[in-house]
Amino acid sequence: MPAQINRILLLFTAFIGLFLVVRHFLIPETFGQYGHYRGASLDDISSREMVFADKEDCFACHDDIMEILENEMHAGLSCLICHGPGREHVDDPQLGNINKESGREFCGRCHDIHPSRPLDVVNQVDIKTHHTEKTNCIECHNPHALWEGME
């Protein structure tokens, strides 16, 4: 075999061999245990401190809200959208550690009129003119039961 072909083959064999050896030592032990990832990463992730609560955590205590919400416009929303991450409140329920905002600005984040916001998806009002004599949306609208007490 000519010298140059010999050297090329030798170099490529050495490279591929080295790659395989390095690969053997670098792949984590638990890789592929459950799928195409490091199995031990599940333990790493589950050991992290939780910040967010789940809807089911909320309904474990607030089952009354669950019943009201069932057929409501906001039924598809997660509680966290208005009430914040909420884990702290689940672990130690106190009135102060959950978000209960209801001002014009807060509701307006979704419901203020906006030309590029699709009307068929989100009901919109102009918060600058809509019942300006009231300061708080929940004076008329119950966010858990939107049409309650309204025509």
Binding site: P2, A3, Q4, I5, R7, L11
Partner: peptide, 14 residues
């Protein structure tokens, strides 16, 4: 890579 053959034949192969 330690090769030393630069005869016309080897260069032609290159």
């Amino acid at each position: 890579l330690g090769t030393s053959d630069i005869s016309p034949k080897a260069v032609k192969l290159d």
